[in-house]
Design a protein around this nucleic acid. Structure first.
Lengths: 146, 146
DNA sequence: TTCCTTGCAAACGATTTGCATTGGA
DNA sequence: TCCAATGCAAATCGTTTGCAAGGAA
């Protein structure tokens, strides 16, 4: 989906649930669309030129995640990072920089993703888990830190 | 490696670096050996019957991780979880319960692990990352939460 | 009006640190 | 002896919440 399309999908999605798509929330979504990977509240605060106070940012993020529009990740460090939910951005995996904690996205080719799904299903079955999702994380040093 | 063997490896490893393997540190390592997956500081505090104050626990964990004996993970929630480093426990992956946040371990068959390594190397190269490791996380509901 | 949303400041919970004390080589 | 390790309490830091003010329907 493209930016405009995503924005519209979200508007409809929230309207159906009687939730307002306010300027602040829209700004958060836009900032996440532009970013190349999961962003922390502090990251977004910067990107939005501190126009939105951290407490409001946290509230918007929590609300959007609760509604199923954002996904929450805890990569390196102790900060939470958010990104658009996969039904909006597409399924993908992450690269995590061990040095600066930045996270980036990457996609697997279909065949590879299929293989992975197989492995995941097997592992889940063996452990008695009801599998809901999976994620492959590649850890290393990013371009700027290596 | 078996418990006794691991304990001895650690003793030697720390001795070589002029770091003491004290009772408290040994207790932390033992608790981690017994556990089935990554443990939080609070988990360990419980398991050790509160015999070791949290601040000391955190210090031991930080020191052992710094030395390369433990690995740190941030699964669900906002708590850090530790486990023995892979050179002691063997390479493996994790299952994370979306409900209670518990983490469990699982291993991939050699062939599967090899495939995964291939995918990881490719993704890293494309993104300009110097790859240091990877981890496959399976998310779902654990036996007790499903 | 009537909720929902926002901002600010205070509160929280996990983790860290200062400092005086203890313990091991 | 002498420095590393420990315990306690206070400090931090990311995040959450109470409450009064602002806004949209």
């Amino acid at each position: 989906m493209k930016e405009r399309e995503i924005d519209e999908s979200i508007r409809v999605y929230l309207a159906e649930r009687g939730i307002r798509y306010t300027g602040g929330r829209r700004a958060v979504v836009r900032a996440l669309q532009i970013a190349a990977g999961p962003q922390s509240a502090a990251d977004l605060h910067q990107r939005l030129r501190r126009a939105i106070p951290l407490s409001s940012l946290y509230r918007s993020l929590a609300m959007l995640e609760e509604a199923g529009l954002l996904a929450l990740h805890h990569g390196q460090g102790k900060v939470a990072r958010y990104e658009l939910a996969e039904w909006l951005s597409g399924h993908h995996h992450h690269l995590v920089c061990l040095e600066c904690g930045a996270m980036g996205d990457f996609e697997l080719e279909d065949k590879a993703e299929e293989q992975l799904l197989g492995l995941v299903a097997t592992a889940g079955r063996r452990a008695g888990y009801q599998v809901r999702g999976h994620s492959l994380e590649v850890e290393g040093l990013c371009r700027s830190c290596r």
